[in-house]
Computed example of a mutant assay.
Amino acid sequence: MGGAVCDAARMDRQKRSLLAHTDHPIAAPLDDDSVTRLLQHAVRRGDERLLDLGCGEAAWLLRALAEHPGVSAEGVDISEAALERARALAGQAGVGDRLTLHRTEGDGFASPHPFDVVLSVGATHAFGGLLGTLEAARAHLAPGGTVLVGDAYWLEEPSTEARELLGEYDDLAATVDKVVAEGWVPVYAHLSTRHELDDYEWCWTGSLSRWALDHPEDPDAPQALEAARQHRDEWLRGYRDSFGFVCLVLRRD
């Protein structure tokens, strides 16, 4: 068992993430209706320039481009496989001419123009946490622009194990307080429901397990299956009852 866990840790993280999100391309615990509602609050005019820091396969941007013919978008991510999938999906949807993708670290991205809407949902780890993500987003934000950010919070006091697994977060009130203290004004928010939280975890572990079972000849199959088992065990026994997720639509004070 210990050896299998070590092998799981050696599986390429980007490949594992791409496989795990096969059935849930929005890399956060949100259903389709929640994504639509959040975009409605962030994209108000329909001609905005969007930027997604940590876009993955650009699911948020593809949704916005499909719903708003006047929107243009750029996405930033370090996974070439995810960006290739994004390009293919954009071509299939007929929005590829309005989507530009950059393979680079989010904190190293530079653009000659600002953006009306900056998104970063479920990627705050790349910027050292929620406030670091907001600082990075602000650097790209046009005056009067909007940020859509998603991050974890504690639903209830976590166990020591949960803290060790996920790191340090605040409860909801403290999370909002520290955002407001930095000069941001929440204009909308969504708290992921129990169904959304559970559905995301079952999709993550299930997609990875299904791929491993369907591709037993792949050298990564045993590691993928073990990674799914380990993740599922940590979720069910470690943090399911204490983990929450909030998406905030923010403007500057």
Rank of each mutant, 00 (worst) to 15 (best):
R163A: 02
C6P: 00
A137H: 05
A221I: 02
H195F: 13
L172A: 12
M1Y: 10
L208A: 09
D77L: 09
L83Y: 11
G3K: 11
D116G: 04
Q223R: 15
A42H: 01
K15A: 14
G94T: 04
L191Q: 11
G183Q: 10
H195W: 14
E67I: 00
D171N: 15
I78P: 00
A73T: 01
L236T: 12
L53K: 04
R103V: 05
Y200D: 06
D198V: 06
L38C: 06
G75E: 01
P69E: 03
W204C: 06
A189C: 09
D199A: 15
A224C: 15
P143T: 10
D52Q: 04
V95Y: 02
V149M: 09
R237Q: 07
A73H: 01
A82E: 11
A221G: 01
A224D: 06
E226V: 11
A59L: 06
E196K: 05
T36G: 07
F243N: 04
L148P: 00
L89S: 07
G167H: 10
P186F: 07
W154K: 06
Q223H: 14
D31G: 14
D170H: 15
A9M: 13
V176Q: 10
P143W: 09
S34W: 08
A27Q: 13
R37D: 14
G145V: 02
G46A: 01
D47E: 07
